[in-house]
Each structure stands twice: as C-alpha cells, then as structure tokens.
C-alpha cells in the first residue's frame, strides 16, 4: 500500500525531533492512516533517533496503536466485566454474524473492523460499543444493524 508521504512529513514537522515525541508522532500517524505502516515506523526511528526495536516495542505495547490497516469504521465492543454481564457477548455475536468477520478482523472492502476491548470506563452505560470516536451506551442487539448502516 502506498501512502501519502507528505502527510508523514507534516506530522514530523509538528514535533521536536527527539525521542520524547515518539508517542505523539505515532498517535498522529495512527489517526491519519488508521494504523502504523512499516515505512512510518522506520521513518520515526530515523527522524527521532530512536532504535527501531524501541519504536516497535512502543507500537505493540499500546492498544491504541495497530500495525495492520483498519476499516473506515472501527467498532469496539466493550467486554469488560460490567458490559459482559449486560450481554456484550450477544452484541459481539450479532456484529460478527452481520459483518461476517471475527473480532480483530477487518472486512474485505475495508469498511469495518471489529475489536473487543476491556472496559472503556463507562460501566454505567453498559453494554458499551464505540464506533470510531462515538460511544453508544445501553446497546441492544436490535440496534446493531442500524449502527452498521449509519
């Protein structure tokens, strides 16, 4: 996959070229491309003067970073304790069967990615499903179809 490298350059221009900028830079790259392309990691290592192994270590440590491309819509189903009790599994099954993929996978047309997360910190609204940056509370199985369409 080819990427708009000028976009990368403008991300690097925003921060001081030192190791302290690493996470901020990776966050911006993740936001821009929905994942961290290999070339971007190599470039970050070179420009910020951080060993590639450390860049890789950081990018695999945080759940917010992904090394594989994600769909336009990333559906995060909370399966934390509260959401689990209130039926997160049913929601997961419904999403999985409608989109014909499993959690952690992306549809072929790159439109959807399903992920499961453990507690997004909104237990009072359980079960919670986040679609990109939008959080939906008290989600019912019957609402799943609409969430995919919207």
């Amino acid at each position: 996959m080819k990427h708009d490298m000028t976009k990368l350059d403008s991300i690097f221009d925003k921060y001081p070229k030192s190791q302290e900028s690493l996470i901020a830079v990776l966050q911006d790259i993740q936001k821009e491309f929905q994942y961290l392309p290999c070339e971007a990691l190599e470039k970050a290592s070179e420009i910020l003067d951080v060993p590639l192994s450390k860049v890789f270590s950081v990018s695999t440590f945080y759940n917010a970073f992904s090394l594989t491309p994600k769909g336009d819509k990333v559906i995060r189903i909370c399966v934390g304790t509260a959401c689990h009790i209130r039926g997160a599994k049913l929601l997961q099954d419904q999403f999985e069967s409608l989109l014909k993929i499993k959690a952690g996978e992306t549809t072929k047309d790159m439109k959807f990615t399903i992920e499961v997360v453990s507690c997004v910190g909104a237990c009072a609204m359980a079960p919670v499903v986040a679609v990109n940056d939008k959080y939906h509370g008290s989600v019912k199985v019957s609402k799943v179809k609409k969430m995919i369409k919207a």
Partner: peptide, 15 residues
Amino acid sequence: STVGRGHGKEVAPPL
C-alpha cells in the same frame, strides 16, 4: 526489544 504486552509479551526483533 520486548514486543506486545501482557500474556502475549515476548522478546523479538522489530517488525
């Protein structure tokens, strides 16, 4: 370096 975290954490070369 170490790669990943929790159960899946391992020592590996980058990428």
